[in-house]
Computed example of a mutant assay.
Amino acid sequence: MKIKIISVGKLKEKYLKDGIAEYVKRLSRFGQVEQIELADEKTPDNASDKENEQILTKEGDRILAKLSSRDFVLTMAIEGKLISSEDLATTLDQAMQQSSTLVFVIGGSLGLDPRIKKRANLLISFGRITLPHQLMRLVLTEQIYRAFMIREGSPYHK
């Protein structure tokens, strides 16, 4: 099993890097984990709709370049299917029957290019709140680990 987490934007905060590293280490017993950080485009203050669209397109091109046609792609999107930790575990079971590579995608500050959402096998949401994409990486990584632990019947998920 291969798990890829593609994220637009660089992590700067040490506490986030440390937390993500801990969950990636824990996840390594379930398969190979690859974290891919893609450059984000600078968004000018008061950017026009056209400028925002161009930014999403550039970031979308970078994401698409990292996807294979065989990947099972789950995108984090505020309008996605609201799922629980248990739902994520079930989703991973189903996804692993279809592909040996699970790819999770977190967009930048403007969200995701519509092409990425269209390519996704599933758009998921952990709630209707907006989180900084750097913090979302930590939350997502922990939830992936939790989903694997749920699948094992581990007491980690109480």
Rank of each mutant, 00 (worst) to 15 (best):
Y15P: 05
N121R: 12
T75K: 10
R29C: 01
I63Y: 01
I129G: 07
N46F: 15
L131C: 03
I3T: 12
Q32T: 11
K58S: 14
Y15Q: 06
E53T: 14
H157M: 07
G31W: 00
D93S: 12
I6L: 11
K12P: 04
S69D: 15
P44Q: 10
E37K: 12
T75H: 09
D18K: 09
L11V: 12
I106P: 00
M96Q: 14
I144N: 02
S7F: 10
D113C: 05
E41K: 01
G60T: 07
L135D: 06
A47G: 07
A65D: 13
S99C: 06
G19W: 01
P132D: 08
H157P: 08
R119S: 12
N121S: 15
K118I: 11
A89G: 07
K81T: 14
A77Q: 14
L135M: 15
Q143L: 08
L110T: 00
K158I: 07
M1K: 14
Q54M: 14
P44A: 05
S69M: 13
D49Q: 15
G60C: 05
S84K: 05
L123Y: 05
T43S: 13
Y23C: 01
R128D: 09
I83Y: 08
E59A: 06
P132Q: 11
I20E: 00
Q32C: 00
I150A: 01
G127C: 04
V8R: 02
F148D: 02
F104D: 06
F30L: 02
I106W: 04
K25P: 00
N121W: 04
R119W: 04
S28F: 03
S99E: 05
E22V: 10
A77K: 12
T57R: 14
G107V: 03
G127A: 05
V105L: 11
S68A: 12
K50S: 13
E53P: 01
R137K: 14
L74H: 08
P44C: 04
L110P: 01
T101W: 05
D61M: 11
A21P: 02
K50G: 06
Q32E: 15
A77T: 11
E51S: 10
S48L: 08
S7P: 05
V73R: 07
L27Q: 00
S85E: 11
T75M: 09
T57S: 13
V73W: 03
A39P: 10
D40Y: 00
K81S: 14
